[in-house]
Amino acid sequence: MHFFLEPGFFSNAPVRTALLLGAVVAAVSAVVGVITVVRSQSFAGHALTDVATAGGSGAYYLGVGALWGFLGGSLAGAGAMELIGVQRVRRRDLATGIVLGAATGLSALFLYLDTTVKATTGATQQILFGSIFSVSSSTIPYVAIFGGLVVLMMAIMRRPLLLTSLSSEIASSQGVRVRMVGVLFMFCLAVSVGLSSIAIGSILSTALLIGPAATALRVARSIAAATFLAIGLGIISTWLGILLAYDSFYWDPSSQGLPVSFFIVAICFVFYVFSGIALSRRRAQETRRPVATDSALSAEGR
């Protein structure tokens, strides 16, 4: 026990903040992530972290609160993607890419200005990779409020969103406002990604958005079950990662420990790989399932 739970783990204030913040962000990311994966919008989900980062580094230079920089950047990026055409599947990849490319250029400029003009060191690494241990606890209320808003919106529009994600043609023939649902979802994605980018850094933002959701979608029986499973997996990965990172300071006294993001990503990835094994097992069972008729024409997904 002593080796696993190093002394002082729970009495350490940054650790407590990290545990709380990590759980909230992991849960919100999981809720949004499930639909992100179903809609095949992982690229947008990841690109928005980089766009949020550009906003964050801009805010840093201008002296505006970083939270607003990240959120503003992310929302502006989502708006630009929407304008260029993220709602059309064929143009989605490009729209995301163009916005990401431009945002990266802006990041380059702001980070340069941050380090040279403001003579701050560590900005590049801090803003790009973030660290869950360095977030001030004053961020927590904002994260909770915005996160709660996103989860509420997702719950309210879950049915239109689901049908739109399966087939926008069928959805619009049924009277679903496909475009509006798409825009609202991009809003949720942008807020969720902006929050997680500032709270836990851009690497973890993508990892927690996609990893647990993709894992859960493979093994769960319904979207609702997948969502709850993803929340659970996200929180477990986050807490276990924080614990291991904290412990890693003690593994080798001369080293500086390993970053949290490394552990959390590794755990998410292990879950995903295991779910792949579970999936191939289930596929094998399903092929043995007696099929009613026309089994000759099995639907090839891709």
Binding site: S42, I203, L204, I210, G211, S261, F262, V265, C268
Partner: peptide, 18 residues
């Protein structure tokens, strides 16, 4: 064996975490 965009995202974060 899975969705290409998910695969890319996960490969990406794994590399970045390393």
């Amino acid at each position: 064996r899975g969705r290409p965009d998910v695969a890319t995202a996960l490969a990406l974060v794994l590399m970045l975490a390393l």
